[in-house]
Design a protein around this nucleic acid. Sequence first.
RNA 1: GACCCCAUGGUCUAGAGGCCUAGGACAUCACCCUUUCAAGGUGGUAACCCGGGUUCGAAUCCCGGUGGGGUCACCA
Length: 491
Amino acid sequence: MAFLVRTRYAPSPSGTLHVGGARTALFSYLFAKHHRGQFIVRVEDTDQTRLVSGSEGSLMRSLAALGILWDEGPDVGGPFGPYRQSERLSQHQQYAAQLLQEGKAYRCYCTPEELDATRKARQAEGLPPRYMGTCRNLSSDDPIHGSGKPYVLRLKVPLSGVTVVDDLIRGQVTFDNKILDDFVIMKTNGTPTYNFAVVIDDWAMRITHVIRAEEHLSNTPKQMLVYEALGFALPQFAHIPMVLAPDHTKLSKRHGATAVEEYQAQGILPQALVNYLMLLGWSAPDGREFMTVKEAEELFTLDRVQHTAAVYDQKKLEWMNAQYLKQLPVSAVRDAVKPFVEQMGVSWGHGPSLESGVQLVRERARTLKDLAEGMRFLWQSPTQYDTKGVVKHFSHPEVVRRLQALATMLRELPADKWEHDSLAAAFDTLATQLEIKRAELIHPCRLALTGQTVGPGLFELVAVLGQQETVTRLVNVVVMLQDEGHELPTF
RNA sequence: GACCCCAUGGUCUAGAGGCCUAGGACAUCACCCUUUCAAGGUGGUAACCCGGGUUCGAAUCCCGGUGGGGUCACCA
């Protein structure tokens, strides 16, 4: 192995993990692991004003939930720390001082108000809003230096020439230095700006491949100029396409759920989410769509990454989640759905097991929430009945007599016959006796037991519900239907 | 507006000059299965942005246009 690949994900702790961020982290991770390299998490918390407490932990938890595991990071440390940008401040300052001393950077005393004014004036004239270099040529003995006036440090950007970004997925991208202005590297408060700090951090952490979203492509020439000024060797760059909302704009809160946490709360399995995410802008060479992170590690290469932004599609995510719900071991689904069942406030300790419920309804659930909701009737007898269903299945004059007969028959069924095939046979027998179609027994029965017209096949449902509970619910409905003055509660 | 990136069905994509009558998946429609709803099965509708080149031949290469996205902060 020629050299060790090291990639990083560098979120700012100002919120939760966004699906776009998760996808960036995932690609970075997969690239590193494909090359048997290391993946690092660094927290970019330079701007303390944007800090959201708890954000760092939440970010890290979401990454871990998706199976994106870091070799080095703020929690586990590592040989190239610190892993929080704010903790590297002295180093940033030291390099800034060096650039100042070498004449590659200079102090700028312009106030934000002045800058803003010229920016607006230039924009009004239709000119690019750039810094004009007012303080670039201040002589070193200019009295302003000792005046105590606040200043920032700006990098002296070459007035001519070009900066070429060699991007691993886009090839060579050329930027004219003339369009770059002398950007700020150290703020008035003595902290570094992003474009300065990121260079020092990546270099100090021996990052070999900077893989990040395309929105950073335009920043890259600035950073390259910093690398050059500092005399640092350049890493490789790869800018991956963005993830867009269905309306083709940047994904934001107004598009509904965007955070990994929110998806989990909706009942999307992390396995499904990460699988869906890897398909956003990348495809496996053999075209397969179902993969674990581990499998993707073997398959992932940058040359198969799309150049176009991907539009995020909730429907496909849910479809994929449904596939996982169907294919995962029952025990895994049971563990995943448990909190959702508990959240419904249903006591599932008695009666059918969670496993049997999962097996019964997982075929028709798209999310864990659906699944939990679909299992509710197992532990909670219906308090309301589907309106249309009542009209359709409870209005026949014979229905009470039929349900009564059904209850009686089921009560007398030997316990060892309480399974799918025997139940089906029993229903057949009764239907023949009553000279009706089996369906005329099935539909009212389902409605009586679950309050709904949709759900699992009746015989497997009854088998799981159990004899006593089934009979009880049937009898209850019979009593309610018999009571002329009583209106059946519907929804 | 300037600069940069991009361009295959509604969406995710396959495609690296002839294998393309453009393949797969989601979504959608129809049918089948069926005790409902799903699931599953089968089939269908639906795309190479436009215009010029290059070439015997272009979805694939080049140029222009158009469209979309991104960046232009003492945010990251």
